[in-house]
Amino acid sequence: RNRTTFSTFQLEELEKVFQKTHYPDVYAREQLALRTDLTEARVQVWFQNRRAKWRK
């Protein structure tokens, strides 16, 4: 699988949710996936990576 390149819009949407919660539930991830045209799995992995970055 190739690396996912996120658009500016997608990143803004993802970051917006991350500001509210670092652990969105499955429903929130599904909604975000639909809004950003990503799969729920991509959204989940983005949050994992974003939390790792945030901890540093």
Rank of each mutant, 00 (worst) to 15 (best):
R1W: 11
R1V: 15
R1A: 08
N2C: 01
N2E: 12
R3D: 12
T4I: 11
T4V: 11
T5S: 14
T5G: 14
T5E: 14
F6V: 09
F6G: 01
F6I: 13
S7P: 03
T8K: 14
F9V: 11
Q10I: 05
L11A: 11
L11N: 12
E12T: 11
L14M: 08
L14W: 02
E15G: 03
E15W: 01
E15P: 01
K16V: 07
V17W: 04
V17I: 11
Q19A: 15
Q19D: 07
Q19S: 15
Q19K: 14
K20E: 12
K20D: 06
T21G: 06
T21M: 03
T21E: 09
T21V: 07
H22S: 06
Y23G: 01
Y23W: 10
Y23A: 04
Y23P: 00
P24I: 09
P24H: 01
P24N: 01
D25A: 03
D25Q: 03
D25R: 02
D25G: 06
V26Q: 13
V26P: 11
V26E: 10
Y27Q: 15
Y27W: 11
A28K: 03
A28R: 04
A28D: 15
R29E: 02
R29N: 06
E30L: 08
E30H: 15
Q31D: 06
L32S: 08
A33R: 10
A33G: 09
A33P: 01
L34H: 10
L34C: 13
R35K: 15
T36S: 04
T36N: 03
T36I: 12
D37N: 06
L38Y: 08
E40D: 10
E40R: 03
A41P: 06
A41W: 09
A41T: 11
R42L: 14
V43I: 15
V43K: 01
V43C: 00
V43R: 01
V43L: 06
Q44D: 09
Q44H: 13
V45Q: 14
W46E: 00
F47V: 02
F47D: 02
F47W: 01
F47L: 04
Q48S: 07
R50D: 06
R50H: 07
R50L: 01
R50Y: 01
R50E: 14
R51H: 03
R51F: 00
R51T: 01
A52Y: 09
A52W: 07
K53Q: 10
K53A: 15
W54E: 15
R55I: 12
R55P: 08
R55E: 14
R55Y: 08
